[in-house]
Design a protein around this nucleic acid. Structure first.
Lengths: 151, 151
DNA sequence: CGCAGATAGTTGCAAATGCAACCATGTCGA
DNA sequence: TCGACATGGTTGCATTTGCAACTATCTGCG
């Protein structure tokens, strides 16, 4: 499949590369959907999905949970608010933070996209066969563990 | 971990999301390396790695093989050439295309980074245990198949 | 031949990103 | 109570990206 590599490095076996390619390929497909339907960015979709899943939370909660840079979250939140998808409310106990929660429009978008995502995922899993479940489990473990060799 | 979702969509089981998180986490770690050592971009590293693996090839070959946008490749190639890492040569048969090949500096960088990547990958696999091999195989299948449910 | 596409690669421009700097608030210990 | 430092969030700026043109070359067909 590949020719000899002096140091023995084989790009086709390098996990970060494989993960990136697979992630890019699968994400690109679904990106079409939320982009066409709602003109949303990948980050916006991720923020929406997190809020849809976990209910009200702060921006830094989202950062922690989704491992997305805080400026990315900040701007996605601003965009989603602009569209009326979410509301911010000063957090009672800590006035630096604000509690984010989906407004009806945002919830509707989340539910519609959630349905489409489910379809997408089912199709993907159907193609992968029984190993899809293993894949998902291993990925979850990697993410939970920090996914860095040195971490 | 998650509460009930109206449509049954579960973000924690959504493969594109999991793949992205895992890819981001693993790539970020290695990005430190080629960034610190050579000030390279992710795309530049990928182009370098492809050239290092497959020898001389054209930019569009790289696009096809690595599924990277052609403008990204174009700019990465320009940057790598600027640093003296690669040479372009007009393709004999097709004068639109140019054959890219690593120059000694580029090859040296590839070999050094290849070694480091190998270490990185080994550490990652050690953490994952026996399922690392399965993971790699499934990812390769996904990539080969286009990785899109509809494809 | 000569013209209608395809394909290789670059460029312009708007949008998205990363990083550091920046406020505002909160926490903790002397 | 005060000052040092941590944390939530935003903003500025340079870099990177994506997409749509655009040039140049190639291919195929009437």
């Amino acid at each position: 499949m590949t020719d000899g590599h002096p140091g023995g490095f084989d790009l086709d076996a390098f996990l970060p590369y494989l993960l990136n390619q697979a992630a890019e390929a699968t994400s690109r497909g679904f990106a079409q959907v939320y982009r066409a339907e709602y003109g949303m960015t990948r980050t916006q979709w991720r923020v929406l999905a997190n809020l849809g899943r976990s209910g009200a939370m702060t921006a830094s909660d989202i950062c922690r949970v989704s491992h997305v840079e805080k400026t990315k979250v900040s701007r996605a939140v601003a965009a989603l608010e602009e569209r009326g998808f979410l509301a911010r409310e000063r957090h009672g106990a800590d006035r630096r933070a604000e509690t984010l929660s989906l407004r009806p429009e945002g919830r509707a978008a989340f539910e519609r996209l959630g349905m489409l995502a489910l379809d997408y995922d089912r199709a993907l899993r159907a193609r992968l066969g029984p190993e899809a479940a293993t894949l998902a489990r291993v990925l979850r473990e990697m993410i939970a563990a920090g996914a860095e060799p040195g971490g």
